[in-house]
């Protein structure tokens, strides 16, 4: 009886430790850290847009065109037309594997500061392809 009680207590302690570890990871893992960094570097308007829709828009430094950056690491940048409808997709990303927030931040900075260099390396794709992100809502 005494041993059984001790096992139950140990099990509960283990579960609590696992929950603590999971919670720590969720708040301090690469994805969470990258997301925090991204939010710090977004303009207030972009941050609000990102929090609501899971994407944000930037203005190209050379052409003044509008781009929508979706929450994804590939094929996630869409150039918008005058009606803010997707016109063409652009695929470019950091050469090292990074968390989603870091990829989005690198894409934002590149488009806002050196659009010409981005367009020189990016591969275009049709925004009507089935895998192209629509409005991806943020996980609760």
């Amino acid at each position: 009886m005494f041993l059984f009680g001790r096992n139950v207590a140990q099990g509960a302690r283990l579960r609590a430790l696992r929950a603590l570890y999971r919670s720590f990871n969720e708040q301090n893992g690469p994805e969470a850290r990258a997301r925090r960094l991204l939010r710090e570097w977004l303009s207030p308007e972009q941050r609000a847009q990102f929090d609501v829709n899971g994407f944000f828009e930037v203005t190209g430094s050379l052409t003044g065109r509008r781009y929508r950056i979706h929450q994804c690491t590939m094929s996630n940048v869409l150039e918008l037309d005058e009606k803010l409808e997707p016109k063409v997709g652009w695929c470019f990303l950091p050469e090292r594997a990074l968390a989603v927030g870091d990829v989005m931040l690198a894409q934002k900075i590149a488009l806002e500061t050196d659009e010409a260099a981005v367009l020189a390396i990016a591969k275009s794709f049709s925004p009507r392809l089935p895998f192209v992100p629509r409005a991806v809502r943020r996980a609760p």
Binding site: L37, W41, S43, M74, S75, C91, F92, L93, P94, E95, R96, L98, D102, L105, A106, Q107, I109, A110, E112, T113, D114, A117, V118, I121, A122, K123
Partner: peptide, 26 residues
């Protein structure tokens, strides 16, 4: 003011400098 700027040389006055890896076409 919140505007972004790329820098090619070290700026000793910058409060925050962010480094991101080279970008490639996907």
């Amino acid at each position: 003011a919140g505007d972004l700027k790329l820098i090619r040389t070290f700026d000793p006055t910058a409060k925050e400098t962010l480094f991101y890896p080279h970008l490639v076409g996907g």
